[in-house]
Design a protein around this nucleic acid. Structure first.
Lengths: 178, 178
DNA sequence: ATAAGTAGTGTCAGTGACTGACTCTACGGG
DNA sequence: CCCGTAGAGTCAGTCACTGACACTACTTAT
């Protein structure tokens, strides 16, 4: 379904996609809830894989360590799939409607990560916080890697978490200002 | 425009909103680029206020400290506007299409925060990382405050950043696993 | 005072994403 | 050979949104 690459997402009608796939427009909408979902098909698998990875992280790891373990595993898949994923990124990047959908998917994955942490025994609130901030660092690394593929995603990832560590050492308990 | 509260967002047509406002449907779409934007009107001001707050944070503060300063300031506004904002949250919370838009706005605000940090002299990459992760912590606090208003948003905020600090102390440079 | 903008609005016609209801066909099991 | 079921087509309809055009009110230049 890479009519999107040729004409752009907005210039591509659902009827055209359906035609290219050799089916009826109605049939297209039976397979995908909407036009955007075509580009986010594997996300359910990704979610499952992420939860699985968090679950299989060695016992005794702290929340961020478990997340980092899972993210590094995802990172390997991302590195392998880059040739396949790159055109998709480009389409998503230039289409606001798709960016929105992507953010929604990320929120969904973040929830999955939080849930997986809870199943490791992490408290509710802490799991949610770790998932949100950890995911933010992960995405920062992914973006950095997209912009600069000369360094491996793993390198970017480790740097992101290191930097996050450095940043947060400046937080002092019970700040008092303004 | 709180037809949304009565019928829900999906059950409300643009024509109805326009009628309630005493104008034509076409006119409605001249004021708002789409049906969703009605609920996200003040975001541009919010963005400006956020950048302003980051800019006016005392000199010498580290990135997270500057962000925390700005977030605490935003928090005061949020606390004051809660009665006004609460119905809006409820509508957004139950409408996926609105949640997506909200996430997009948050990404926009995160970019603003990163930009404001850069203007304070923070490096590009670090500014982006701090903005992303700091924003994540902020949102965690806001969510916690919505769920539990018994404690002030400020309290939730400080706890979130404290917890983030605690979480990230477990990150060791140059992790080596799997 | 009049002419010439200009901003905000109404009207109309059209495109395209989706949806519901109904039909048809293909296929596996009894 | 019959039947239930899953997938696919057809048709008609709703609704978000858009472009083109006309009209009105209010400003500003002459």
């Amino acid at each position: 379904m890479e009519l999107y690459q040729e004409r752009g997402f907005d210039q591509t009608t659902a009827a055209e996609i359906a035609a290219r796939a050799g089916v009826n427009e109605r049939t297209f909408f039976r397979h995908f809830p909407d036009k955007r979902e075509v580009l986010f098909d594997g996300e359910a698998d990704l979610r499952a894989a992420l939860m699985q990875s968090v679950a299989e992280a060695p016992d005794g790891l702290e929340p961020f360590e478990a997340l980092l373990y899972a993210f590094r595993k995802s990172a390997r898949n991302l590195e392998n799939n880059r040739p396949f994923s790159e055109p998709r990124w480009k389409v998503v990047a230039v289409t606001p409607a798709l960016r929105e959908r992507e953010l929604a998917k990320h929120a969904w994955l973040t929830d999955a990560a939080a849930e997986a942490l809870r199943q490791r025994g992490v408290g509710d609130g802490l799991a949610a916080l770790a998932a949100r901030t950890g995911w933010a660092a992960f995405q920062h690394a992914v973006q950095a890697w997209i912009d600069n593929p000369a360094q491996s995603l793993d390198t970017h990832l480790l740097r992101a978490f290191d930097d996050l560590h450095a940043l947060s050492t400046t937080i002092r308990s019970g700040q008092t200002q303004a």
